[in-house]
Design a protein around this nucleic acid. Structure first.
Lengths: 192, 192
DNA sequence: CTTATTGTTAACCACTGGTCAAAAAGGAGA
DNA sequence: TCTCCTTTTTGACCAGTGGTTAACAATAAG
């Protein structure tokens, strides 16, 4: 009916992702709608479907950045002057801090991850876990059971999944994070 | 427009809850709509709002039963002929089994629990935790740190939150559940 | 000056949770 | 039986969702 948008700034994938990403900081996946993105971008929501096949595809693109960030955080903790035990603690704390500081993202990366964002993100999650497991293994003085590493990861995940209901960010759960991390180190260290 | 439903079976809260509960076994909170409940009940969805103020209220009523069931499972594991360590294992396994066998319910009880089902269920969740903590404390031979008990609970929660993506019920994760439970017992038992 | 391609719009679909005026059902009393 | 009243129920309606698609505008290619 009405002519093409007068201000002809072509819509790009990047613009869409940027806007979605912007909203993703304060809102979660469900609260962000194609229409809210379109509105902020000054286009119709139908236009977005030309660039992305659905809502999940937009968010998957965003999530891959966050998976990278998580992996980077992990690696940064690996090379440093500290001793192995300190590094291990930092890896644990780093994981929980990431989850608490990026709650909406973490939810999609590790918690929701159902049909919506489908298998794509699941693969990235598995990769992140592999990296985590490898790091923990190399930081341990003794040979660890892979099941123990797995249990440790699950325990870290549990912490984030639980505390995101009570705190807004890592800062607010600093002490609890530390306590939990030390509990896990104790558990890993113990050999019968 | 059309006259009142011919077959006059008055709608009751119980009927609504039963139907919602029935659907809750195969679908999750989001997949169940007021209209799907009404359709199965042969009434209009508006009628349901006469008996319940909103969707959350229906599901909160259902959840309280599940919280009771979880608490009962816990208590059943407490009194028995087994030794303390076996009981402790059963408590851990019991919690994870419950979560994996009632995934939709567990999600609402401990994972979603945001605005939707609001604070009501949070209170029940805290109560469940208290009961859990008390049980663990009484089953331990030595005096436990409350932080260790809390970390253990979080680790159990993490297991359910993680494995519900991969298995349909407890049976499918039996071995992993056992391994995780034993890891946590080891962690709790260890004293430096 | 056509023609084809790329982008964009807006109407449309089938849903959702929730509200509410109106009407129906059923009982009590005359 | 005929009112009168209360409790239930209906279905139209609202504002919103993700997703599709015919039509059309802008641009580039021939």
């Amino acid at each position: 009916m009405s002519p093409r948008k007068p201000s002809t700034k072509d819509l790009t994938k990047e613009m869409i992702i940027n806007e979605a990403h912007k909203q993703f900081i304060t809102k979660d996946f469900q609260q962000i709608s194609m229409r809210s993105i379109a509105k902020e971008l000054g286009c119709s929501h139908g236009a977005i479907y030309y660039h992305f096949k659905n809502k999940a595809e937009i968010f998957y693109a965003i999530l891959s950045d966050y998976f990278s960030e998580l992996n980077n955080t992990l690696n940064e903790n690996m090379d440093g002057p500290e001793d192995h035990n300190t590094k291990l603690l930092n890896v644990f704390v780093g994981f929980m801090a990431f989850g608490l500081n990026n709650q909406s993202q973490y939810e999609l990366m590790f918690i929701m991850r159902d049909r919506e964002i489908d298998g794509l993100s699941q693969e990235a999650a598995n990769l992140s876990y592999e990296e985590f497991a490898q790091s923990v293994r190399s930081l341990s003085k003794t040979e660890l059971l892979i099941s123990d590493i797995h249990s440790t990861f699950i325990a870290l995940h549990g912490f984030v999944a639980h505390y995101r209901h009570y705190v807004k960010n890592y800062e607010e759960a600093k002490e609890a994070v530390d306590v939990h991390a030390k509990f896990l180190i104790k558990a890993l260290t113990f050999r019968e």
